[in-house]
């Protein structure tokens, strides 16, 4: 068996503009944080896609399980106060 030199996997998050959240854009391989950030810049932000980059080792990400989607996400659907779309705003105000 050949020696395993696979570099660790990292997830990349980029903030495209001031004021927006960092958004997951993809993954890459790197041996350390410094290399991960540089690689992220070269791979995912070479067309000016961002103003800020976060990287995190993939192994540190814990995900909700798709099997449990029902109990995780459905209950929020019937709680209208979590999706406030019902406020009446006078027509004169077109944007709020």
């Amino acid at each position: 068996m050949k020696k395993d030199n696979q570099w660790p996997l990292w997830e990349v998050f980029i903030r495209s503009k001031q004021g927006l959240n960092h958004k997951h854009v993809g993954s890459l391989h790197a041996t350390d944080q410094q290399m991960a950030i540089k690689n992220a810049r070269d791979v995912y932000a070479r067309r000016n896609e961002g103003v800020s980059i976060w990287v995190v080792k993939s192994e540190h990400i814990h995900a909700s399980s798709p099997d449990k989607n029902d109990c995780f996400f459905d209950p929020a659907n019937d709680k209208v106060y979590r999706h406030p779309t019902f406020y009446n705003i006078p027509d004169q105000i077109d944007h709020m």
């Binding site: 570099w7 890459l28 391989h29 790197a30 540089k38 690689n39 070269d42 791979v43 070479r46």
Partner: peptide, 11 residues
Amino acid sequence: PELEQDIALIN
């Protein structure tokens, strides 16, 4: 040696 490095060198 690795795709990321390839891309970095080309930049």
